[in-house]
Write a protein that binds this DNA or RNA. Structure first.
Lengths: 199, 199
DNA sequence: GTCTATATGGGGATAGAC
DNA sequence: GTCTATCCCCATATAGAC
């Protein structure tokens, strides 16, 4: 196998394990085992655990950027864009109930560890924040677009946190519906040619 | 020093360190150092790290119960009670911006570790949930009291998570004010003899 | 590029002196 | 009740053969 392919596999596995069990609790041996690599060979690809974390965050930033850009190109309206974001909670409900929000929990852990990468992890939030702000600007809410973006982010974080604590799928669906109602109330005049049902 | 005093000191220090740095990242040596105890002597008071965690959670449950009970006895109305809860975000803003919500981040970590104590940590949420539900019942919202309670909890979790990621105090104050407006809209007929300003 | 073997350090936990 | 000394395991990280 080529070095780049192996490296990619390592990042993919590390990404998943960091999400499922946390950064600190995931050992090199865990990653190597799932990739099917010896611990020794591991260091050919990554010198330190922090290097893997950097690669994982970089990949998440790239994937998230791509996803948001695609949404912006495909969605019929800014409202539809924001709805897409909110519906991540339902689409990923199983994983969220098991492990929480991938971004929120990582930021949490790195902040407690006072890890050097904590700000880069938080920049994942900034990606969503700026993108949401842009949607609200398009909806004519220039003045409080950033506050609205943070409000949507805040709600999704709260839903993910409680959904994980209580393992309550009905709670997720209820709060997503409430966010859609809130969204509609924020921009009542917004065009909405392709309405989607709450669940 | 008596055994019970030393034990209490250990629990207090562990409580703080678990909050500031997380459960796993806090070592026996860290706790012992802050208490002024040798690692060896430590095991006279607690046999395992999980025992300390149990004691910390038990203490948090007791303290929280006491606080909620006192609020219920002192507050002029259920609305005032809920407002007290929401205002924890402002009262503890410095610590929240640094380390997040003590309950949410602990539940998070224990869930990822699949720790046996994760459900007991989540019961801290249940304490708030049941208490909030009771307040909404008093306000005449029997039918959806639990959903409203979860909604308030959800918002406070979301605010704590983002406040920690962005270190934004203004965001906290804005969202607390928004929650108070929401609360007022939920129970417009509720008596409110002692209104409190948003900040 | 992949392996085995190994160095090094930290953390949980124990034994036993005082 | 407190201490020092120590054991054991696991995790990061390295060296060097293949």
């Amino acid at each position: 196998m080529s070095a780049s392919e192996t490296r990619q596999q390592i990042v993919d596995v590390a990404d998943r394990l960091f999400y499922e069990h946390g950064f600190e609790a995931t050992s090199f041996a865990d990653i190597a085992k799932d990739v099917g690599l010896s611990r020794g060979n591991f260091y050919y690809h990554f010198k330190t655990k922090d290097e893997i974390l950097d690669a994982v965050i970089a990949q998440r930033l790239a994937n998230t950027s791509g996803m948001l850009l695609a949404w912006e190109q495909d969605a019929a309206s800014p409202t539809e864009c924001i709805r897409n974001f909110v519906h991540i909670l339902i689409a990923n409900r199983t994983k969220i109930m098991a492990h929480g929000c991938p971004v929120g929990t990582l930021c949490n852990e790195l902040a407690k560890l006072d890890h050097t990468a904590k700000d880069r992890a938080a920049s994942l939030f900034t990606l969503f924040r700026d993108w949401l702000r842009r949607q609200f600007v398009k909806l004519g809410r220039e003045e409080d677009a950033d506050a609205l973006a943070l409000h949507v982010l805040m709600r999704s974080q709260g839903v993910a946190a409680l959904a994980a604590a209580f393992r309550d799928e009905e709670f997720i669906r209820r709060e997503v519906a409430d966010m859609e109602a809130w969204l509609h109330a924020q921009c009542p005049a917004a065009s909405n040619p392709n309405p989607r049902q709450p669940a």
